[in-house]
Amino acid sequence: MHVLKELVKNRTLYLMAFPGILLFFLFNYLPMAGVIVAFKRYSFSTGLFGSPWAKPLLGNFQFFFSSDAFWRVTRNTLFLNFSFIFFGTLIALALSILLNEVRFLKVKKTIQSSILLPYFISWIVVGVFAYALFNFDYGLINQGLQLLGIAAKDWYNSYEAWPFIMTFVSIWKTAGYTSIIFLAVLAGIDATYYEAAEIDGAGKWSKIRHITIPHLMPTATILTLLAIGRIMYADFGMFYAIIGENSILYPSADVIDTYVYRTLRKLGDVGMSSAVGLYQSVIGFCLVLVSNKIARKYQDEGSIF
């Protein structure tokens, strides 16, 4: 009866924790149990646990794995996320290193504020911004092209361009935020490193190379690893707000999350959408475990936890 004794002894503390515990149970743990729906022939009347098993049991999966969509959404999700992580981190690193060299505090603060602003707005708004830039009739990009004597391009009708556009948008929205995390790390560097280097006659570049960059690497590595752990998950809001249901762009910009959403809400196919979701969750889980493990090794103090 150790458990009961402890619960009674610290009852106030456990009661304080209770609402949060309950909410995690309802919105995280119950859905985990609910993954069995991927193996069922779901009907709303019989519910999650009462619906009959699918025949064959893996029927929902077979349907997805043998469809064109499987390869398309997997490839797009991995490729686009990889591109976001790689270029996003690179640009954020560059921005933080450059900003760190700016000697005029006011200028530095103003630039910092400007590059952080996109982080504060919703993807729907970003979708409008993208439209203002890329729409065929009056968008800014096409006007620019015409000024240069290049024919206007119908961006929303050509899927090849979107991996680049989406990468650009992703950097635009998040690089400022990431660079401020890096700047915080740089603010913590002991100034004596730089002073000592100066006495030894080190120039600006060699100080950046031998002091600044090595100090940024642990944080950059951890952030990258955590992002790779989530590489199976695309940002639904980003894709749904910018690409939406423009099927012409699906070959390069349909991702697992938008596909699951459409299959569930537009087609009402609970079986297949949950199978796709479970496929994503299981691979995602393995990746998170591996990346967390590596990250932990990298930083003893626990990767955040």
Partner: peptide, 22 residues
């Protein structure tokens, strides 16, 4: 118990069914 919710998720379909139906 809390940390595990960051590692694994049941996906949106079970979440949707639980939230709306149950």
């Amino acid at each position: 118990y809390c940390f595990f919710t960051m590692l694994f998720s049941g996906g949106i379909v079970p979440w949707y069914i639980i939230t709306t139906q149950y």
